[in-house]
Design a protein around this nucleic acid. Sequence first.
DNA 1: GATGAATGAGGTTTCATTCAT
DNA 2: TATGAATGAAACCTCATTCAT
Lengths: 204, 204, 204, 204
Amino acid sequence: MAKAERQAREKELRRNLILKSALFSFAKYGYHKCSMDLIAEEAELGKSTIYYYFKNKDELLLEVLKSGLEGFFKKLTDKWAELNDPKEKIESVSLAAADFFAENPDYFKLYLYLSLHPKIKNVTVNSLRPFIENKNKLFVKLFKDARKAGIIKPMPPKNLVEIFGTLIMGVGIFGHYKRKADIRKRMTLINEIFFEGVTPEKED
Amino acid sequence: MAKAERQAREKELRRNLILKSALFSFAKYGYHKCSMDLIAEEAELGKSTIYYYFKNKDELLLEVLKSGLEGFFKKLTDKWAELNDPKEKIESVSLAAADFFAENPDYFKLYLYLSLHPKIKNVTVNSLRPFIENKNKLFVKLFKDARKAGIIKPMPPKNLVEIFGTLIMGVGIFGHYKRKADIRKRMTLINEIFFEGVTPEKED
Amino acid sequence: MAKAERQAREKELRRNLILKSALFSFAKYGYHKCSMDLIAEEAELGKSTIYYYFKNKDELLLEVLKSGLEGFFKKLTDKWAELNDPKEKIESVSLAAADFFAENPDYFKLYLYLSLHPKIKNVTVNSLRPFIENKNKLFVKLFKDARKAGIIKPMPPKNLVEIFGTLIMGVGIFGHYKRKADIRKRMTLINEIFFEGVTPEKED
Amino acid sequence: MAKAERQAREKELRRNLILKSALFSFAKYGYHKCSMDLIAEEAELGKSTIYYYFKNKDELLLEVLKSGLEGFFKKLTDKWAELNDPKEKIESVSLAAADFFAENPDYFKLYLYLSLHPKIKNVTVNSLRPFIENKNKLFVKLFKDARKAGIIKPMPPKNLVEIFGTLIMGVGIFGHYKRKADIRKRMTLINEIFFEGVTPEKED
DNA sequence: GATGAATGAGGTTTCATTCAT
DNA sequence: TATGAATGAAACCTCATTCAT
């Protein structure tokens, strides 16, 4: 019957509405100062309805983060599919992040905020860890490939991933940029520094 | 009378004890999950005593951060006094940070955590802003000097401060390092990348 | 039409399924900690279905208890039909209870639990009262008959019913017995004490 | 200083006030239907004050029960100190219980209610277990002594303790008695049945 | 100066029940 | 007949803060 199908679709929509409202409110007030009431109000639903869709606040947070990260990595891997050159692939990470920041200014702030919270770190974010570590391996491999291709100095790939990741996330932390073009410009600068450094070419 | 003096000294000691306990507990539990009780217990003082020394939780946090930052910048400016070369000065920032991270693993995490918290950002941390912006000017000037000295490409100094700052703080975010030597090594890598990039020298 | 009949039969089956699941869950979690969800899940039915069969949680409880008690008294009166001697009849109560405990370890616990719950006592269990008082009269009559037959001291029959009832229910309260044989043995001891006391025969 | 002493005394008084209010309210509404608000209102204190004195609802319950049982056993052992004959000692148990029921009509109901609650049984009441098992040993010893003195048939003392205990608690369960004299009368009947049984003396 | 005691405000979560389909 | 979805009401508990001493 088409009915069941429509219901499933509507349920998915509601779920996404809650996810969206939660992200918005978490980001606006910060996870700890954002009450379930606030989220419910934002979603224009009863508070208990949220508990009908998500077991508790922690899980809601988790799903918010998951859906955000999934969106980001979907975009990124789509882009990678079009590229071959490792350097271009690396640069595409920051550019994909730029677009993602512009469209979802809250995800990375929330993610970082939580990464730094000692208690949550141990409970919720940890269940994201497998997901993240999986992605991390992709990045490590990317840098290894770049190294093999001779376009990167012999530096430990893991460290490079961390450092490059930091650079990108920094945009999210300090991010007072609003326009996508500005963020892209900043990412371009980051790419340039990461690859070439700030030291001018010696002319001789 | 020496009595008043001794009393003043004792008061200062108490204040510092509270500050230390607060930092420890904030870092251990996260600002929002760290109750005044926890801090009082850590300091082995009555809870109300904390209110005798600090107006409220927010102000306590502020003072904790201030004292931490002051410590860091004290060390940094001491080092700068010994140096002339702008590049060396820039590099000394990350090395000073390395030592500071090793000795005070919690300050920067707390600082970052709060930088990302929307509400606190607007209330408490903002009152740190003058202090920080002041220090920021020092860094901007440093990069301008470096630019003048020709050891830096013509890139916007403000952006460079942010990017270099991000690189350093990243160590605090991911910070799984325990030994000072490890942190220093990582900072050296960061310095190298920042100045020279990851692209190998073209040999021709 | 046979259809209506089958439907009625199926409805009865569903009702019993819910009753069984409710008893199981009430006993497992305790009435107050047992949510309708739990019961619905146990019955593998939608939660609203329970409301289709029973007006509310209280009524469900009531019906659970009723059906349990009915089962017990059915067995008991069946046995009584075979017996004439009042003493044997009295003893058969505890033995019937033994079997009933063994087969339905939860009914009496639930019944007692609720007898002790002040609020429920006043609302739901009270509607069991006519039923129970009816049965009680049977017991009182039994003890009166026993008195007439000269096999019981001249003690107030009502009190004897209460005391004998207590003894039996005590097995349900402390009931750490698992095997039917153990419960029967215990009931035999209770019968002996109730009739003969614990004081040894004077030998002279 | 006398000040500290007075404060300690006042704190103890408050604690007892809460305990009393809690017992009253638990008994009136039943543990699960008795909210902390209700207790606070009864004690004419803020709800949080109760949490200042007791960690949570479970612990409050535990302390209520503990204090009740302690009161009972204090009275009982006081009486035992005056007695030598094991039979008199046994009888004194039910008479002490009679007085205790009359003065604290709620304790045993609450205790039983909780003994029967599957979830609480495993958490809170269990922490009473050592206390209770300790007392139980006293009773077992009492029945062993009575056996040695030849005033009890060779029946397993543990079972006798349970059965005798059940008889006494039954008064608490069904207890519609208000006047101390009525309860004592009932206990006397129980003692008589327990020792001599309901079977009349054979006259021959 | 120092603190034990008290609490109001607010947070998360549970759950019986209803309603549209 | 059966049920998925939604929710209001209420429960437990935490915590920054105050106040009397």
